[in-house]
């Protein structure tokens, strides 16, 4: 007992603090991930579990990766996912940037309340926020009929429609992504804009810049770290999204998250699902590494 206590006082407490979470993450995160990487080069078999590394098949099988590039279904799913995620990121930026900038211009007491209103949706259920839009986009909803009336009133009579087809389209996917991920764009942008020195703006104005020139020459360049951080926080989860495309997306043009899930659960092709998963991760690692590199360089300059 005394020896145990001495060990604990000297080193044990530190070993436990490092070791326990380390062990947990290796066991429940790294190991499952390595299994998926190994699975991506296995061969599908009709056995249970449905894969093998040996037998008549080649030991290592790159068919899954070959199909990602060769099969139009996978190419299309990747392109749709990346395109939807990119568009959602751009719209989040276009809406989120002025909102974040406005938040830095309101009085301090208002600012806390408004910031709380930005964060509040983040705490409420993601699924229910998607669901709320399903209610709005349906054909007979007040939102859709209102927009339809507006459309019919504005456009020539030949273009009139009965109702706007919103649900089950890429438009719906992008709209709901913008809705659910907008706080992720606003918060880092606000954090980087709030730190800017307002006297710089005033100096530029005194030196004769127009307000839009001040924005382009002074504010925008200084907020690029916030734009990149917000962009990654939106783009990365959006590209792998499963819930939104399943609920409001077009079943004929599935996103990559849906493809992984279907390959795994319905086709029971574990190696193929794993290949697609590894490919998706590889695509996501590139912007993350670029960001880390950029951030390390920015910190080095300080």
């Amino acid at each position: 007992m005394a020896a145990l206590k001495a060990w604990f006082d000297r080193r044990g407490w530190a070993d436990l603090i490092v070791g326990l979470p380390y062990l947990w993450l290796v066991l429940f995160f790294l190991l499952p991930f390595l299994i998926v990487v190994a699975m991506s080069v296995a061969t599908k078999t009709p056995t249970a579990p449905p894969f093998s590394f040996g037998g008549e098949h080649p030991w290592i099988n790159f068919d899954g990766y070959a199909r990602i590039f060769g099969d139009a279904l996978y190419v299309r799913a990747f392109l749709i996912s990346l395109g939807n995620a990119a568009l959602a990121t751009v719209f989040c930026l276009l809406i989120g940037y002025p909102m974040a900038l406005a938040l830095t211009r309101v009085s301090r007491s208002w600012r806390n309340i408004l910031l709380m209103l930005v964060i509040l949706p983040f705490w409420t259920s993601f699924l229910l926020r998607v669901y709320a839009w399903m209610g709005l986009m349906g054909k007979s909803s007040w939102f859709n009929t209102g927009l339809t009336d507006l459309w019919n009133w504005v456009v020539p009579i030949d273009w009139a429609v009965k109702s706007i087809p919103m649900m089950h389209s890429n438009f719906a996917v992008i709209l709901v992504m913008v809705y659910t991920y907008l706080p992720f764009m606003i918060l880092p942008l606000y954090a980087s804009l709030e730190r800017l020195d307002p006297t710089l703006d005033e100096a530029a104005l005194d030196l004769g810049s127009r307000p839009w020139q001040v924005f382009l020459d002074v504010t925008l360049p200084q907020s690029i770290p916030g734009i990149i951080a917000g962009g990654l926080l939106v783009f990365i989860p959006a590209a792998g999204e499963l819930v939104i495309p399943t609920l409001v997306g077009d079943a004929a043009s599935p996103m990559i998250g849906r493809v992984i899930s279907d390959q795994f659960s319905q086709a029971r092709d574990w190696p193929m699902a794993s290949s697609v998963a590894v490919a998706l991760l590889a695509i996501m690692v590139i912007p993350t590494m670029a960001y880390n590199h950029y951030q390390a360089r920015a910190e080095g300059l300080k």
């Binding site: 499952p32 998926v36 990365i236 899930s261 998706l280």
Partner: peptide, 11 residues
């Protein structure tokens, strides 16, 4: 991505 965490945990 959650779907990858989900699939790898299940496997």
């Amino acid at each position: 991505p959650e779907v990858i965490t989900g699939v790898s945990s299940l496997i």
